[in-house]
């Protein structure tokens, strides 16, 4: 950083720096080890996994675990449902967030302070689980696809981030000039605001999409039919509750082999379930970082 001042590092500083490197290497290892262990187990034979022979490299390499995952109809249905909830949910999220955040960013929008206060109140106080559930129940959304999309159609926090972004990037003078030239508000949104807001729209989309992909709480309380379950609920049933029905395991005639495969299936399933997000993530990392920054501007 400060190159011009070439003062030699003292020995104390050198010891300190090596400690920093050791610490960061440890962090790297601690984060990676559990993940590498799961990855290598998922490619190992069931016997090797159950007997504890697997460390960080597959033992008796096989694809059996993955075959079991892809032959399982429940997981396939869950995967498709999750894609549906993520795509539709994110589109609705982004649309509603912009529709609320943009007017609030305009100084000429009469009543914006009242609405802002209404927004902040929802962040500090909430009705709680039971009234929330009853609202969804009374709207007759229980056990429908809408229950996965409408109750979480908007995140107040994202609205505040988007509003801050609009306020700082779209000068009021621009809106006024457009207004004088006879450009109405809707046209201004579509031809000026949205094109100028691509970074924040990207961040918002990613945040919402990851949220939908990983969510299971709403599904847990609102859904009953197995054909509506998102992937996370299927994962919970298989991975945590251990309810793997016999039909899930293809071509396994022996009890012991079946038990082993059941255990192996968990490892492969963890990889399949988090794989998509973790593979895409390095490419979009900078957007997430940007999102945190824009969010922190407010703070």
């Amino acid at each position: 950083m400060a190159k011009p001042l070439a003062i030699r590092e003292s020995s104390g500083d050198r010891i300190f720096m090596s400690l920093v490197y050791v610490f960061l290497t440890l962090v790297l290892l601690v984060v990676l080890l559990p993940l590498l262990y799961i990855l290598s187990s998922s490619f190992s034979s069931p016997q090797a996994v159950v007997s504890g022979k697997v460390w960080l490299w597959p033992v008796n390499f096989t694809f059996d675990g993955y075959k079991a995952v892809f032959n399982n109809p429940q997981i396939g249905v869950g995967f498709m449902n999750s894609i549906f909830y993520t795509v539709v949910g994110t589109i609705i999220n982004v649309a509603l967030t912009v529709m609320l955040a943009y007017p609030l960013s305009r100084r000429t929008f009469y009543g914006r302070n009242v609405i802002m206060i209404l927004l902040v109140i929802t962040m500090m106080f909430e009705g709680g689980l039971i009234p929330y559930y009853l609202v969804v129940k009374n709207l007759e959304l229980l056990d429908t696809r809408w229950a996965m999309i409408l109750p979480g159609a908007l995140a107040v926090f994202q609205v505040i981030i988007a509003r801050t972004f609009f306020q700082t990037t779209i000068p009021n003078e621009l809106a006024e000039a457009a207004d004088l030239d006879g450009c109405n508000d809707l046209r201004f949104i579509f031809s000026i605001v949205l094109p100028l807001s691509k970074p924040i729209l990207a961040v918002m989309m990613l945040m919402y999409a990851v949220g939908h992909w990983n969510a299971y709480f709403d599904a847990l309380i609102f859904l009953r039919s197995a054909d509506l379950f998102p992937l996370q609920i299927v994962l919970r049933n298989v991975l945590i509750l251990n309810t793997v029905d016999a039909s899930m395991i293809a071509n396994a005639d022996q009890m012991i082999a079946q038990q082993g495969l059941k255990d192996l299936l968990k490892y492969s399933l963890i990889v399949v379930a988090s794989g998509p997000v973790l593979i895409i993530y390095p490419f979009v990392q900078k957007y997430f970082v940007q999102g945190v920054m824009i969010g922190s501007l407010k703070g």
């Binding site: 509603l96 967030t97 529709m99 609320l100 943009y102 007017p103 609030l104 305009r106 000429t108 929008f109 009469y110 609405i115 209404l118 927004l119 929802t122 106080f125 909430e126 009705g127 709680g128 039971i130 009234p131 929330y132 009853l134 609202v135 709207l139 409408l150 109750p151 159609a153 908007l154 107040v156 609205v159 109405n184 508000d185 809707l186 949104i189």
Partner: peptide, 29 residues
């Protein structure tokens, strides 16, 4: 002058009322 903005904000406001404020009122139970 900005009637369009009020139109735009109606839908998200409806969301806030239905899924945030009605549950808040629901705490009477």
């Amino acid at each position: 002058r900005h009637w369009q903005l009020y139109l735009v904000i109606l839908l998200p406001l409806a969301y806030l009322i239905i899924f945030k404020y009605i549950p808040m009122a629901g705490i009477v139970i």
